[in-house]
Simulated assay, not measured.
Amino acid sequence: MKPSIAIIGAGLAGLTLARDLSPHADVTLFEKARGLGGRMSTRRNDTHQWDHGAQFFTARSSAFKTLLTPFIADGTVVEWQPNITTLSPDKAPFKRPWFEPHYVAAPAMNRLLKAMATDLEVRLSTRVEKVEQQQDKWRLLDENAALLGEFDWVISSAPLPQTRALLPARLLGDTLARYSMLPCYSLLLAIDDADLPCWDAAQVNNAPIRWIACNHRLPGRNREAGAIVVHSTSDWATAHLEDDQEAVKQQLIESFCALSGVNAKAITQAQLHRWRYALSSDVAEPDAEFVLNASARLAACGDWCLGGRVEAAFTSAHQLAAVLLKQL
Rank of each mutant, 00 (worst) to 15 (best):
S4P: 01
S4G: 05
G9D: 12
G9Y: 13
A10I: 10
G14D: 05
T16K: 02
R19Q: 13
P23S: 02
H24Y: 13
T28V: 15
T28A: 09
F30E: 08
F30I: 04
G37A: 07
R39S: 02
M40Q: 13
N45G: 11
Q49L: 13
D51A: 09
F57G: 13
F64V: 01
K65V: 07
T66I: 03
P70D: 14
A73L: 07
G75A: 04
G75P: 13
W80P: 09
N83A: 03
R96D: 13
P97W: 06
A105E: 09
N110S: 14
R111I: 00
L113K: 04
M116F: 04
A117K: 02
T118M: 04
S125V: 02
R127C: 10
K130Y: 02
Q135H: 13
K137N: 03
K137H: 14
L140S: 07
A146H: 10
L147A: 12
G149I: 00
T163H: 08
A165Q: 14
D174H: 02
S180N: 12
M181H: 02
M181E: 12
P183N: 12
C184A: 15
Y185R: 07
S186K: 07
S186T: 15
L188F: 09
D195N: 10
D195G: 00
L196F: 02
A201Q: 07
A202T: 12
Q203A: 14
I212C: 10
C214L: 05
R217T: 08
P219M: 02
P219Q: 12
R221T: 07
A225G: 06
A227L: 03
H231N: 11
D235I: 04
W236R: 03
T238M: 02
D244M: 01
Q250M: 11
G261L: 07
V262W: 04
T268R: 13
S281E: 15
A284Q: 04
A288E: 01
A294K: 12
L298W: 04
A299C: 06
A300D: 14
C301V: 09
W304Q: 05
G307I: 10
A313K: 03
L320M: 06
A322T: 15
L324T: 06
